[in-house]
């Protein structure tokens, strides 16, 4: 990280290196820029949505080294040398929707879609940690994410379905490698 002179702007800028969806990125930005603003404005990754900007709504949730965090509560400069996964990075390498993404389609887990990126990142990490959740655990897992239009029933169903799809695909790939 190197400091650069931006006296004309009257504000300290830094160059930050981080990995976003597996790609090394280098970006120069004001030190007060949050990670969500850096992703959207500096890296053009507008899949991450900015809702309340104080950690309540969960729309901006991204994965930092695989764990869900609020990107509105993190300075971009603090993400230096870390791995960030946004909703754009969730699809499988072959372009197929991830289990969580597919489950939200199957179960009508989204309507307007504003909150969806935060749900997808949160749930993707959750089913890795808990591959066989109970309905209650599924509900708890999305407790920190607000949705104002779809309704939570379909979202909870999507969480459970995501875990199922993940298991189905694991079986498929095992059978595939046996063949």
């Amino acid at each position: 990280m190197t400091s650069t002179d931006h006296t004309d702007v009257g504000e300290q800028h830094l160059e930050v290196r981080l990995r976003v969806n597996g790609m090394p990125r280098r970006v120069e930005l004001p030190v007060r820029r949050t990670l969500c603003d850096a992703l959207r404005q500096d890296l053009g990754l507008t899949g991450t949505h900015v809702g309340c900007e104080h950690g309540v709504c969960g729309a901006c949730t991204v994965l930092l080294d695989g764990e869900p965090v609020r990107s509105c509560l993190m300075l971009a400069v603090s993400a230096e040398d870390h791995d960030v996964t946004t909703v754009e990075g969730l699809t499988e390498p072959d372009g197929r929707l991830s289990p969580t993404q597919q489950a939200f389609v199957d179960c009508h887990g989204l309507q307007c879609g504003f909150c969806t990126p935060g749900f997808l990142t949160t749930v993707s990490a959750f089913i890795e940690e808990n591959p066989d959740p109970t309905p209650e655990e599924a509900r708890e897992a999305v407790g920190g994410n607000l949705c104002r239009c779809t309704g939570y029933q379909n979202i909870v169903a999507s969480v459970l379905r995501a875990a199922e799809i993940q298991k189905e695909r694991a079986t498929e790939s095992t059978e595939g490698s046996d063949a």
């Binding site: 990280m1 009257g10 504000e11 300290q12 830094l14 004001p30 030190v31 007060r32 949050t34 603003d37 900007e53 104080h54 300075l75 400069v77 230096e80």
Partner: peptide, 10 residues
């Protein structure tokens, strides 16, 4: 909802 300016130390 943006933080005021500050000098950052790491």
């Amino acid at each position: 909802m943006k933080t005021p300016k500050f000098t950052y130390h790491a």
